[in-house]
């Protein structure tokens, strides 16, 4: 997994609550058996005017000029500003894969759906939960300042801008550590293989029908 330490980038505002994972990456793209290549179809139904299917040449499709990700002022954005319950719905990890493939590394929202939140960390994406008033303020800043950039520092757990803004954010220590180091969680768990085996031995006595 790619490490995340510090990032300065343009923030793009997606002003909608309850954005579900099917909106992030529509189901027809889930038929891929790969982990990569989902970026061009991120938010496909909102981003393009036609109906997308796998295998299409996305560069020739008509884009929806009203959709925020298509606006020139947000080109190259790596921080996504979002609303409540972002990532609800299906558990598809294709959603963080699509965001990451597109170039997004940080998502800021007042709340996230649990499974999506969890999936982000497995893919080098940093979801940040902030109080609603602060998210509102960031939406306003992005809206009124073209080219507005934020710096997200995971080491310090801060979000800053050039104008002196400074926001602290909270994060589980374990997740922070894995992200900072780009750790392979399976490897971490396998380091406890003996304990897993000991647990199994104990359970064989208590719930033998499961073994």
């Amino acid at each position: 997994m790619e490490k995340f330490t510090c990032l300065t980038a343009i923030a793009v505002p997606l002003d909608r609550a309850n954005v579900d994972t099917d909106a992030i990456i529509p189901k027809q793209f889930l038929k891929s058996i790969k982990r990569s290549g989902f970026g061009p179809n991120l938010f496909d139904e909102w981003r393009y005017l036609d109906h997308g299917e796998p295998g299409m040449d996305n560069s020739t499709r008509a884009v929806n000029p009203d959709f925020v990700l298509n606006q020139a002022r947000y080109a190259g954005a790596q921080i996504l500003l979002a609303r409540d319950n972002f990532g609800c719905g299906s558990s598809r990890e294709h959603a963080p894969w699509a965001l990451e493939d597109f170039g997004i590394r940080v998502i800021i929202a007042p709340s996230f759906a649990d499974i999506f939140y969890n999936n982000c960390f497995k893919n080098g994406l940093l979801p940040i939960v902030l109080p609603e008033e602060i998210v509102d303020k960031l939406f306003e800043m992005v809206d009124t300042n073209e080219g507005y950039q934020l710096t997200v520092d995971l080491e310090q757990q801060t979000i800053t801008d050039d104008g002196g803004l400074k926001i602290n954010f909270e994060l589980d220590e374990f997740r922070r550590h894995c992200l900072l180091e780009g750790l392979d969680e399976i490897g971490l768990t396998l380091a406890h293989a003996d304990e897993i085996r000991a647990y199994e031995e104990k359970q064989k006595q208590i719930t033998p029908w499961l073994f």
């Binding site: 982990r35 558990s91 598809r92 990890e93 963080p96 499974i115 969890n118 999936n119 497995k122 893919n123 969680e185 399976i186 768990t189 396998l190 406890h192 293989a193 897993i196 199994e200």
Partner: peptide, 15 residues
């Protein structure tokens, strides 16, 4: 429900 990374994690470690 879990994501694909966790499917792999369970396959590999049962945890």
């Amino acid at each position: 429900g879990v994501g694909t990374s966790e499917v792999e994690h369970v396959l590999a470690t049962q945890c």
